[in-house]
């Protein structure tokens, strides 16, 4: 019964104009994407697998988040140059997957909550975090962002959604729901893929052929241009501070910041206190 309703919704969506889509969608979770991620959940924490590029992306995105929080003065001066600069900050990792990003943020002292729609992945994330006894400031939950945000309004200092928005339905609602969880002056960090010819070539064709990501990970239609994302953030009462391009060197498994945003990019926005 539920399935037929969902099918109907999908059908409507394709007929309805963009602006009306959000009304028809009940969730930001895309079932097809969800299944795809669950399929690869086993190998999530294996350092020699497809996750490699996501692992090494931590070399960019963790400092990006840490320094973003330092620059917006959310980080307590006392902890700034210690091993735990994020002490006292509540951080929500939306679409945490196996916990690649949640773990380092928790290790930096943040009080991290990771949510993901996939039960499997959350189980894997919990198991992996359980092996490191120091990670007792990290909680995982199976939840969609809209369910979560309705119960956790303005609780978090930072919301992170890294490589997630290109996998959800109704992206503007997703952004809006994320921002709901943020305290005023809190920060939202997003990393995603641009919608360009180059991103189609590299993030789909090349990445899948080279085995950097499993086949079917990315859908071109869901890629999002920086200015559109910026508009969505503005609509949710956020002011964009930074948009940086990111470049992945497959040969050295290294990520680096570049000015060109035509493939991958990261953005940091601050919720305006109204």
């Amino acid at each position: 019964m539920l399935k037929t309703v969902e099918k109907l919704i999908i059908k409507w969506k394709s007929i309805l104009p963009n602006s009306l889509r959000s009304l028809a969608t009940t969730t930001t979770i895309d079932e097809r994407e969800l299944k795809n991620f669950e399929k690869h959940s086993e190998s999530w924490w294996d350092q020699s697998n497809e996750g490699n590029a996501l692992h090494s992306m931590n070399f960019l995105r963790v400092p990006f988040i840490r320094d973003g929080l330092i620059d917006t003065c959310l980080v307590n001066e006392k902890y700034r140059d210690t091993a735990v600069p994020l002490t006292g900050l509540k951080i929500l990792d939306v679409g945490c997957g196996g916990g690649y990003l949640s773990e380092p943020l928790a290790r930096l002292g943040g009080e991290v909550v990771g949510i993901d729609a996939s039960n499997n992945l959350v189980t894997i994330a919990r198991e992996h975090a359980g092996k490191d006894k120091t990670l007792n400031n990290l909680t995982y939950m199976v939840s969609s962002i809209e369910d979560f945000s309705s119960k956790n309004l303005e609780i978090f200092d930072a919301v992170v959604a890294s490589e997630v928005i290109e996998h959800v339905n109704d992206q503007s609602r997703f952004v809006n729901e994320c921002v709901k969880c943020l305290k005023p002056d809190g920060s939202i960090f997003l990393t995603t893929i641009n919608k360009t010819f180059l991103s189609k070539l590299f993030a789909i064709c090349v990445a899948e052929t080279m085995g950097i990501v499993p086949v079917g990970t990315h859908e071109y239609d869901k890629f999002i241009e920086p200015h559109i994302l910026q508009r969505m953030l503005e609509d949710s009462n956020c002011c964009t501070r930074i948009i940086h391009g990111m470049f992945y060197n497959y040969l050295t498994n290294n990520w680096s910041w570049v000015s060109d945003t035509s493939i991958c990019y990261a953005t940091h926005a601050v919720k305006v206190s109204s």
């Binding site: 735990v84 002292g109 120091t134 007792n136 400031n137 939950m141 979560f148 119960k151 956790n152 609780i155």
Partner: peptide, 20 residues
């Protein structure tokens, strides 16, 4: 959910410096 969150937050407060 809030209860779970609160619990996790208070636990981590004790941890701050102890770490590893």
């Amino acid at each position: 959910l809030n209860a779970v969150l609160r619990k996790s937050f208070s636990k981590s407060a004790c941890r701050r410096f102890a770490s590893s």
